[in-house]
Design a protein around this nucleic acid. Sequence first.
DNA 1: AATAATCACAACCGCCACAGG
DNA 2: ACCTGTGGCGGTTGTGATTAT
Length: 361
Amino acid sequence: MGRPPYCEKIGVKKGPWTPEEDIILVSYIQEHGPGNWRNVLTNTGLLRCSKSCRLRWTNYLRPGIKRGNFTEHEEKMIIHLQALLGNRWAAIASYLPQRTDNDIKNYWNTYLKKKLDNKKVEGHDDHDHENNHQEGKSSSSSSSSQSKISKGQWERRLQSDIHTAKQALSEALSHDTPSNKPIPDLPEEQQPVQTYTTYASSAVNIAKLLQNWMKNSPKLSSSSSKITQMSLNNNLSISAVSSSSPSEGTVNVATGQGLDSLFSFNSSNNSDVSQSVSVDEGGNFSTPENTNAAIFQVESKPNFPDSKAEYGKFQEENKQNLETQQVPLTLLEKWLLDDANAQTQEDQLIGMALSETADLF
DNA sequence: AATAATCACAACCGCCACAGG
DNA sequence: ACCTGTGGCGGTTGTGATTAT
């Protein structure tokens, strides 16, 4: 009897998002702002459930998301914050505003956790090794087994984990090496391979997806929808018409001229990015390779008279959010990188974390 | 060259909290 | 006080890409 299963509706689409869906969603959010995900379905005709739309936006389409390699600094922060906060990825992500919780979680699960586990095994003959033979199932913070072990055991393990994290952090701090350099302590076969197939920033992604999409479904490109041009040259221009329901799903965006747009995907290394992507009517598509960042500027042409004001308001809010998010980051950065204070403050925070967790019992 | 193993990451699922009726 | 809808979160899975055998 419980709740109906997630998004179980006839006709609700699952799986990877198509560029067309992305554009429709982005267009809708441009006009109405994020939130009210329920309305996205009714207003755009997207065959996606509200949750899926929200996730797509927050994890992928949202402006200001940085993708690809984690910097050494980010890695240190994640290790440190994970030790303090546990697997509270949303909380951790709030200190790294350019990263999504999903990204951080993935990075932790696929790389950092193994790295720390490795250190732990090297450090002492660890009984956890036995427990962790279900590799990938049990977290290094052992949250999954918390209910099965006594308070004392759990605290000891927590402290041990925090100690491990602290060690890793201090080692990382002492070796001021770029992330691509090998980590001295790790055997060669376990060196991090920081060659993420960077799922580049949205514009390029969409462009690439479009390429496949148009190849795979030429019918769509001619009858269901039309994408006549897409170019990225620090400005992006897209003309896309979703003809399934023009009044609802129409996207009609033109080249921004230095617009400080909502959809400016600014990456730290994008200043010299210049690439163009074009799609002709035959579906031929060209884009230079090896670009993983681009500014994605879109000027919308709203359908509603007052939506421009709303859009401006949203733009402003968005800016403010990004600005305010910098504050805790800066403080934390200072805390993390101030060698003189790091140890004492760290201890204080860890103490706080321990006393907080002790309150749970 | 073919196949298996591993990795990286997008997306889904289920649970929970909370607001509004 | 209870019910319902919605959004948020963390865990997990699916899948394409890459690497190893």
